[in-house]
Structure formats: C-alpha cells, structure tokens
Design a protein around this nucleic acid. Structure first.
Lengths: 362, 362
DNA sequence: ATAAAAAGTGTGTGCGTACACGAAAATCTG
DNA sequence: CAGATTTTCGTGTACGCACACACTTTTTAT
C-alpha cells in the first residue's frame, strides 16, 4: 500500500505538500499539484483511514432526540440500542453522542428537550419527528443555525433534513394487507384497531392504514371488507377487552385483526383463547411483548423494520457525513420484514448480540 | 479517554509495562501487575482501537474458497461481493484476502484449488463446503496444519470448523411450507422440483425439502399433498418446460411449485402465462433472475438469506478472530427473509449501495 | 561475588494531520 | 532599480496512541 511518504518521495516534495493537495487546502503551485495528483491517480492512492482517524483530533457531537422507552412503550429501546452500538464503533473517531429523550405523548417535552440540545450546539442532530407542527418549528431553527439534521423512523416531507432512515409506512401497510388476504378466506372480513393515544404519531399510522386498505381494495381476490374499531386507551386493558370481544361477537365474519402500531401485543393479550382460534392478528414490530405473543400463537404476522439497525445506521451515516463529508442519500429505507413464528428466532441477531455483549460487561 | 500513557503515569511505571499487562505478555511482577490491573478496571480502560490498529503491523491472510459465478449460476456473486465489501473495511487493519473459486459441479476443481490455498499458507480459510467427502478431507488437512477454517452458506456437521455462517436450511424449507399452505386452498396440491445437477449441494437442498415436507405434514390445516418431480438438467430449458407442463396437465389439482434452490427463475420462466395464473411458485434467494420473475408476478415467494451479508460477516468475523482473538459463536444464522413482490424493493440495500459505490469508481 | 533470570525502561515505528516556520518569488515604495 | 514588504509556495516536525524490541536495572540463585 502506497503511503503519503511514498508519494512525497516520488514527487520530490514533502509529506505536508501532498497532504495539502489531497485535502485541497491550497498553497500549492499548480504545477506541483498536477504532478502530485497524477501520482495519486496512477497508483490509485487511498488514505489509510486508520492513521487518518488517529491523527484527526477533531471532536464531533451528534445530538439525538428520541422518545423515551419504558415498560409500556418499549419500541424505542431498540433504535436507542442501535445508536449506542454505533457509538461504540465510532467513538474512537472523535464522535460523541448527547442523547436526549422526550415523552412521546407530550409535545412540550419534545420542544423543551430540543431547547436543551440547541444550547449544547451539536454538529448534527438525529431526531424522531413525532409531532408535525413542532417539528416544523424545530427544523426552522436548525436551518437557521446551520445545523444539519436527519429524521429517524418517521418521515416528514417538505423539510430540509439531509436524510431519512426508516420504513416506507405505506408499503408496510400494503404488505400487511397482502398477508391478511392470504390468511383469510372467502367471505371473511377483518378489522383495523385504531387507538386515540396514537394520534400523535399520526403520520406513520395513517400511512400504514392507507397502504393496508389499498391492498384490500385493489389486489385482494377474496374482496375482504375491512372495518374500523376505535379504542380509547390501550393501557386500560379491561375496556379494550370488552370493546373488542363485543365487536367480535357482533361481527362473526371477522377473522382478522390489523393493528397498525407496535403495541399489537396489547390487543393480542386481552383476547381469550376461543377468539385466538378464530382471528389472525397482524401487527408491527418485534418488541419483546409482541415476540412473546407470537411464540404463543397469539399473533400471526408482524411487519418489522430492523429498528435497531435504523439507530445504528443513523449514527454511522452521520459520522460518515461529519468525518468524510459524505452526503447521504435522501431516503434510506429499512426492509419490510415479514416475521412469523417460524422465522422469528433468526431475526435481529445484531440486536441480540449487542445485548449479550453488554451483559457481559455489566 | 484514558490512554496507556495515563495509566503508566498513575502506576509509576513505563508504557511498555502497562502494555505487557494488557496483553498478558508476562515479565511483570505480580505486585505491579495487580496495581496496573486495578487502575485499568477502576477507570474502565479501553484500548484505542484506532491507535492499536495502526501500531499493529502484523499482516493476516484470509483465503476464501467459494464457487464461481457466471450467467447461469449467479447466486455466488452476492457473498463474494460481501467479502469484498468487508475487505475494503478491514484491509487497513492488515487483512489480506486471497480469493479462490471452484466449479460447483466439479469436485476436482474444489480439491485442486484447495491445494493452491494450502501452498500460500493463509492464516485462516473461509470456504463453502459444497461436497461432503472432499470437505472432510480438506478439513482434516487444515486441522493437521493448524489452520482455522469457517464454513460459509453450507453447514456440515461433525467437523472442526470454528464457525458456520448461513441459513438454517431446514427452517427455511419449513417457512416455505407455511407460505405454500397459506397460498393454497382446500384440495389443492403442490410439487417439489428437484434437479439432478444440484445433488452436489445435496445437504442444504435436502434439508429444505425436509423442512417443507415437515410443515405440510404437521401444521397444514388443508392437508396439502406434495408430489415430487425430477428434472434432469436445468440448462436444457426445452426439456424442463416439456416435463413440467406435462406434469401440470396430468395433475390439475397442483396449484403450487416448490423449488428448493436458487435457480427458481428457470422453472418460472419456462411456464406459459396460463400456468402462471394457476400455480404459485415458491423458491429461494433473490438472484437478479429471480427478482426479474418476481416483478412480473411469476414467482410468489422467495426465501432469502442475505447472502451478501453472509460473505460480509464471514470476513468481519474472521478479522475479529485474527486481530482481537475473538472466538466467534459456533453458528451464526442468517435471517429467513420472506420476500414477495411488495417488499422486494426494500431488500438488500447493503448490496445495492456497494454496487453503486463501485460503479462510481470504475 | 558472579551469573542468570526476572522485571522494568526507553524509544523507534506505523501514517496522516496541521501548524510554525523558512525560502523564494512577486509586488510595491521612493 | 535597490530595497522593503507581502504573497506564494513549500518544508520540517510534533502529535495522536499503541506496539514491540533492544536495552538496563533489580532480584534471585549459586
């Protein structure tokens, strides 16, 4: 492998001059520059990224703004772990992460946590744009301050984010629709369970419903009819159970339940065995609770989005952007994974191995 | 971040001594060692992997032995690209790759290429154990020479490989069985297409058939019967078409075709439109040809295994093993991905982005 | 006291980065 | 046009951190 020293020797200049040519720092005569560039190209010179990283003592700060996770809402733990995994890989390149979290049901906490971020003046921000209006405001401020930002998991259009990493929600719903059609027979129907508490994260949920309905209308041979059931509060399992079972008793042709959110397990767990024999549940994301239900045959399909990887890639992408000035593509779509009991165990190995690594340390 | 220098200062010894404690090189009195270890632990000291990599000028050679790919058998291109992608990431750590390939229908080329590998005396070998008997011989030789080796994509039991990376073929078939059941109705049947030319790669194919049959027997409500159809030579599309269409005409209840190999497209492409309306095809791997068929609704499902990632992870795992002495887990299972037309586009982004990166350069 | 083994030190190396500084050329001043 | 000043071009080198080998000092055995 050719080194800067070698190039310098060949060009009869010093290492410093070669370095300045490589990084376009100026202060080199055109003649020398051409000569050096020629040597670089002819030998297909590549910087040794290791040595480069070591010498580069510049520090970068990435701020993250991601919803809190807790026992009830565990989904966001996974991207957060991905972020931490990526951090462990890039921190020796001078990348620091200041992670901030907010209550996904409270716009104020979203904004106030953002204010804190601004004060620390990070180099870039990775955020989950949970609320539309507030995000517009935030984006505006960031544009004004000249701080680049990327959206994680949720996509909002018309803003100047340099990148989005996440699933195409519409197609996620579309795939769910196909799976529902496959699972049901002629004359069967299904129901979409909507929760008021999820209106905050309206965009993704809405797109998932839209895609689902579109498939049912356009491509389903059996002409399956999809009804709508509103549930007020998912934490009040008693009422959920009551509402749902009453609905199922009133509508005997319903053989499928579609839950366009990651809290599918709440629906699955409140149903009695008899109903599980009758209805297939299709939902989203492989949270521990959902996995638990799936293992016990209470959930038929989950559409998963490698959320661990989303966090991981977000940080890696931003690090590349900061260190190597590599502008990312505008949208990085996560795969639409179809998870069922039989392939569940082979999913998300990255996350699992990261967990066990950390377990060893702690 | 604490450095070796800091630790040395704290412990009143030189950097060299700290280094020897960290790497257990010996030559340090117990007293000093304890003192240093205490400081390391208390401050949760971690080596700077960047500096470490730079200082370590040891070179490692990884030899790979993977089937050739060409227009007819394009599957193996994908793991090979993964290998190259990983190489680009680790070559500055002193990792070199000598890649060797063999004809997957010719045991002699397998063995002779292996002989060449042995002569170069690599530090480790990554190989696709395509032939059982010959692989036993190879494994023996490697054991004898003390060269560690790992299996890629195909698993053979009872040998001393330090690791296997690939799919659980049995479960892959099992999942295919479930998808077949979902796709067919009561009274329908399906057929498994076997090719003689694939007997070489007997193991994986066999396991896929086994898993498929097991699902049909044990868990399929509709009691779908699976027949067997042998096809001599997949390259002779005329005969394949004839055999297959005759079979389908003779067995009108057959509504599904199961192809337990990556050359699913060959079957799909030889069928006339009329048959495509009637039968659903389920196969393996997202080769360009298979993708092409799927986009045109000629293939219903593909079980995919992230083969690009298999190659990638194989090299990364071995690099970790060589550089950090990190012993890998015995089996690293790839996900069992369910691919259909609707989620096809979101699959294997890694591979695509690697392709486009290389396109820019070339 | 001397040899031998053990313990510990000092330093050059890997490679790119960036700054302080030197040299040469170009521009300006009277 | 001599001399001073600025600009342009280029050099030299300390630094980041771990590694490993040659070397010196201390301890132990003889």
């Amino acid at each position: 492998m050719l080194t800067i020293k070698d190039v310098a020797k060949q060009a009869n200049v010093s290492e410093g001059t070669v370095d300045r040519v490589i990084h376009n720092r100026g202060g080199v005569s055109k003649k020398t520059e051409q000569k050096i560039l020629r040597i670089l190209q002819e030998n297909n010179f590549k910087l040794n990224p290791i040595a480069s990283a070591l010498a580069l003592k510049k520090k970068y700060v990435i701020a993250t703004l991601v919803p809190k996770f807790d026992r009830e809402n565990v989904f966001w733990e996974s991207p957060h772990m991905g972020i931490m995994k990526a951090l462990s890989e890039v921190e020796s390149y001078g990348i620091q992460i200041k992670d901030h979290s907010f209550d996904q049901f409270d716009t104020d906490s979203y904004l106030s946590e953002f204010e804190r971020i601004l004060k620390t003046r990070p180099d870039v921000v990775i955020l989950v744009p949970m609320f539309i209006e507030q995000t517009k405001e935030i984006a505006n401020r960031l544009d004004h301050e000249g701080i680049p930002y990327m959206f994680l998991n949720i996509d909002l259009e018309g803003l100047n984010n340099i990148c989005f990493i996440g699933q195409d929600s519409y197609m996620g719903g579309y795939v769910a629709g196909k799976l529902m059609c496959l699972s049901l027979g002629k004359g069967d129907g299904c129901v979409t369970v909507r929760t008021r508490s999820n209106i905050t994260n309206y965009h993704a949920i809405y797109k998932r419903m839209e895609g689902f309905n579109r498939y049912l209308e356009s491509s389903c041979e059996n002409k399956i009819v999809n009804l709508d059931l509103k549930v007020d509060n998912l934490n009040d399992t008693g009422t959920v159970k009551e509402t749902l079972e009453k609905f199922l008793i009133d509508n005997v042709h319903i053989k499928g339940i579609y839950v366009p959110s990651s809290r599918t397990s709440v629906i699955a767990e409140c149903l009695d065995v008899a109903f599980h024999k009758r209805v297939k549940i299709i939902g989203f994301d492989t949270t521990p609770q959902n996995i638990h239900c799936m293992e016990r045959d209470q959930i038929q399909f989950l559409i998963s989005q490698r959320s661990f990887n989303q966090g991981y890639e977000a940080v890696r992408t931003m690090s590349d952007y900061l260190i190597h000035r590599k502008t990312p593509v505008k949208r990085i779509y996560s795969p639409i994974q179809i998870i069922m009991k039989e392939n569940l165990a082979y999913n998300d190995r990255n996350k699992l191995s990261f967990q066990s690594e950390n377990a060893k340390v702690g």
